[in-house]
Design a protein around this nucleic acid. Structure first.
Length: 378
DNA sequence: TAGGCCATCTGGTCCT
DNA sequence: AGGACCAGATGGCCTA
């Protein structure tokens, strides 16, 4: 089959490979985020003239300056030893195609060499080397995609976004951050979620929307005192399977209260409606941009198809564990849990988080956007 | 079992 | 010639 390759044609504009694009995106995020955080810090300062505030916000723009380390070269266990010495049989192959000399009319163009056993063997070797290179190339590409996953909202090492969803989300993330920077003003969270979820599949939409809105809801409703303490989750589902449970949300067999998340009660259901008027924006999952699979919609504006039911404590604990991990820091506020290594530090992710016992909420209103961003890196 | 996702192999194309 | 990149094919795994 002839592949319709046009990417690298001379007339086509120069384009980067997928792997390079992923790496560039990762770095781009790390460069854009500080600006957004700085902007968010300004917003936060404007907003918080009354209560608990203004402690330390100098530390939030230095954590991201270090570029994410590029996709570490895969160890290429199979390809690394390819440069061995297998080129010592050229000579005898060259003369084996002279046997048809004779008086036949010579054909133009490259001579068709006979496939001798040696040539077949060499072709095999070449193919194997090409396979090994292709394998490592794909490993590098996956590494780059993993890096991209880490700087994109809703990172989870255990339940990864698919490749296509990662790229879609990255695109939306860029657009959203760019929009924030361009407008210089704080969009409402619904719009933010809309931007992020545009074109994403339903499960991913649930994931992203849940990440943001559950936290927002808690921030909006939970008191910032002891009542907002966190505990390690006790639910058997609470270790990691956030995405799993989100996918459960879209399942027709989903039963609220059975250990799965009830998006409505947790997000827009109670607390959220108080903060955002019902006439506000709501994601349009039926928009033409949506290309993903369709599953029973999880409503972001309170009118969802799922049955409403108050959430269990395990669910709540679970949310805390999943969404406040980014705030699991000793710093009192405005802390983006990015590690000094440039890449998201281990503490930024749910797999490596310290215990939650000492985590507090510091806002009883809408969170500053650096915190919103922090949500995405749980 | 169907569908989604993924890894791998493979051949074609372009570039150095 | 060989490497990089790409897309199609294929089979495995997982989940609903």
């Amino acid at each position: 089959m002839s592949s319709s390759r046009v990417a690298n044609s001379p007339k086509a504009p120069p384009c980067v490979s997928l792997q390079v694009a992923c790496t560039m995106l990762s770095r781009l995020f790390s460069e854009v985020l500080p600006d957004v955080q700085r902007l968010a810090a300004d917003w936060a300062e404007d907003n918080e003239s009354e209560d608990c505030k203004a402690k330390d916000d100098e530390h939030d723009d230095d954590d991201l300056d270090e570029p994410l380390e590029g996709s570490s070269r895969a160890e290429s266990e199979m390809a690394g030893d390819d440069d061995d010495d297998d080129d010592d049989d050229e000579a005898e192959e060259e003369e084996c195609d002279d046997e048809n000399g004779g008086d036949k009319p010579k054909k133009r163009g490259p001579k068709k060499r006979k496939m001798t056993a040696a040539r077949v063997e060499r072709s095999k070797v070449r193919r194997m080397k090409a396979n090994a290179r292709e394998r490592t190339r794909m490993h590098d590409l996956n590494s780059a995609l993993d890096n991209l996953r880490k700087v994109v909202p809703c990172y989870s090492k255990t339940q990864k976004l698919s490749k296509i969803e990662t790229l879609r989300l990255a695109k939306n993330y860029i657009l959203a951050l760019g929009e924030i920077l361009r407008n210089g003003k704080r969009p409402d969270v619904v719009t933010y979620v809309q931007m992020l979820c545009k074109g994403l599949s339903q499960p991913t939409t649930n994931l992203v929307a849940g990440c943001l809105q559950l936290n927002t809801r808690n921030f909006l409703t939970e008191p910032c005192s002891e009542g907002a303490r966190f505990h390690m989750p006790t639910s058997p589902f609470s270790v990691h399977p956030y995405s799993y449970r989100c996918s459960r949300l879209s399942s027709p067999h989903y039963q609220p209260g059975s250990g799965a998340i009830n998006m409505r009660s947790h997000s827009y259901g109670s607390g959220y409606e108080g903060a955002y008027p019902p006439g506000g924006t709501s994601p349009d999952y039926n928009s033409p941009d949506y290309e993903g699979q369709h599953s029973p919609p999880v409503c972001l504006n309170g009118g969802m198809s799922g049955r409403q039911q108050e959430s269990s404590d395990t669910d709540r604990n679970y949310h805390y564990s999943m969404h406040y991990t980014g705030l699991t820091t000793s710093r009192p506020s405005h802390s983006i849990p990015f590690g000094p290594t440039g890449a998201r530090s281990a503490g930024a992710h749910s797999e490596n988080i310290p215990p939650f016992h000492d985590v507090h909420l510091h806002h009883d209103r809408a969170p500053p956007y650096e915190d919103l961003n922090a949500f995405f890196h749980n």
